[in-house]
Design a protein around this nucleic acid. Structure first.
Lengths: 184, 184, 184, 184
DNA sequence: AATGAATGAGACTTCATTCAT
DNA sequence: AATGAATGAAGTCTCATTCAT
């Protein structure tokens, strides 16, 4: 019925399933069945299974890339770092399923071509919120701020409370951490 | 030739491979070959592949269980919580490969019998470092303290510096976070 | 090369082997080899091994089903019952290998989904050739008539004589038995 | 605890399981577990799995052998044949599980060393209740009498009524059949 | 743009059997 | 009289992938 959008639909379903069950446990048969197409159809749109993941990654990771590009050009002030965190939270929320997937499938993803890229980005980002001459404790604070954001996205679902409120509390804690690292 | 240690050797090799490549990607053939036994020998010692994981989990998770038991009986003071963090860091270090595995294979592990247990433990632990009447921000601080510990174990490997020093910095940041939550 | 008949060919070979060696002893490898296909090809056409059997059963059992449907609508006279026996003999002959298989693999087949169905059919049929108010001895006669038909199909192969003649003798004995049950 | 009787216990359990699930589907592990012994223990008492079956067969088949031996020496009168049927019914009842097993596992048992023997015995027996110069229809009657006995043992369980009464009805029908064959 | 049919590799698992103790 | 440990063969099944149509 619908046509040009098959590629997109494949990605949508794939992401959903990858996030839910993991990459290895999700078979192409499953994806195809859920779309009511044959497996062979998937191969018309993507060269391999990994390719589906790579496609997803490229599409959904752009905000994070743009964040990094933007951040690199800013002065390395506390304000910049706090803005990075704010933007990171937004990027995280927008691509939540992908990040959840990345978080929960590290072992699998590690040796996929995409894996390196992701780790590199995290390292890059962590480099942009700390300073080389920081004391170790302050470096840890900055990294912790980043991971607080992650915990905020995933573990906090288990904590009761208004989502908006949780969201803000998470951001505040993270902002505090970099502020403290900057000697506030 | 065969000594009573085969069961242990299986667990050792399995943990190593599970941590390195993930659970799904590690085949029983691989484990068996590395031990120079047949696959069938694995089945003499463990009923299923999952059972190997369950065995590992039971053995390596005991310190965390004991920590929870101990913590439940303590007064819910700041000092207790800080002691929990200290002990948690030790437990984490002792069973580092298992925790790394758990962290990196969440998607896979989620539907294994072991998965629930692990999540429950994390929730229990997070319940023991916060208080129900805390402001949301303080709750987040406490949870963040826990996750800082995780980041400390795994992501911090990518940060250069003396391991001992990093270790302590991580602990300090975590201790600070609960202290702040307690209004210090 | 591949024509649309593969599914049918699988069933043919499977029935042959199931009847010859039994269900458990017949491996999918064997079936595949005899067809010069891979095992995986079997799984393209049938979801499981049991499914091959279920397919066979559905296809070959139709005459018996139709017989039951027809019989239910007839008046419960002696003539009807004798006609049932005549038709049963034909149905039996048409699906001889399947019936032989069912007969000789009862233990195996009992817990397959197909098993119940088969027993139910036999019970149904036996209900259609006897009457509830018959004396026990007459009930036994009717059941015996049915089983005479089975013996006729399988054990009689060991008795020498013209097949056509045996066939008729078997039918006559069965017809006599119901006739006697009806007080002839 | 108990000792000399292990061999017997193995046979008991094995027969029970063979009859219930079939020979192929019953594993030595299952037998061993039910006896609370190791598989290796079974091998102390029996050389192979088939050997367990052979043992059972030899033990439980004796009455049938004795019946054949006895029958061979009797005059080939109607009375003798009817006595054969009476005795066969008793033999059948005494070794019901074994006969049920034989009946329901013909395909499996066929190529076991024991299989031939069983078929031979059935042929022998069928030779003793008919006469070479009988008309085909009368031969069928005699064979039918034998199979009525089998149906009586197994299928009749599905017919309601007093067991004793069913038992007798079955015998009467069988006796009638040979009587008719003899021109009664 | 997609299907139907098939493959080759490999997964987990079970089994009957052996043998030193 | 029986166990603990292990093996080799085989089984069912699933998967990513291919290719002619």
């Amino acid at each position: 019925m619908a046509r040009g959008n098959t590629r997109q639909r494949i990605q949508d379903v794939a992401l959903e399933l990858f996030a839910e069950q993991g990459y290895e446990k999700t078979s192409l048969r499953e994806i195809a069945e859920r779309l009511d197409v044959t497996k062979a159809a998937l191969y018309y749109h993507f060269k391999t299974k990994e390719d589906i993941l790579v496609g997803l990654f490229h599409d959904l990771t752009r905000p994070m890339d743009e964040l990094i590009v933007w951040a690199r050009e800013q002065p390395r002030t506390l304000e910049t770092k706090q803005e990075i965190l704010r933007r990171y939270q937004v990027a995280l929320a927008d691509a939540a399923p992908l990040f959840r997937f990345m978080q929960e499938n590290q072992a699998t993803v590690r040796e996929l071509s995409v894996g390196l890229t992701f780790k590199e980005r995290m390292l890059e980002l962590s480099g942009l919120v700390q300073e080389p001459d920081f004391a170790m404790k302050d470096k840890v604070r900055c990294i912790s701020a980043l991971f607080t954001m992650h915990a905020g996205m995933f573990f906090m679902q288990n904590v009761e409370g208004d989502p908006e409120e949780k969201h803000e509390a998470v951001l505040e804690v993270a902002l505090d951490l970099v502020a403290q690292a900057h000697g506030a």
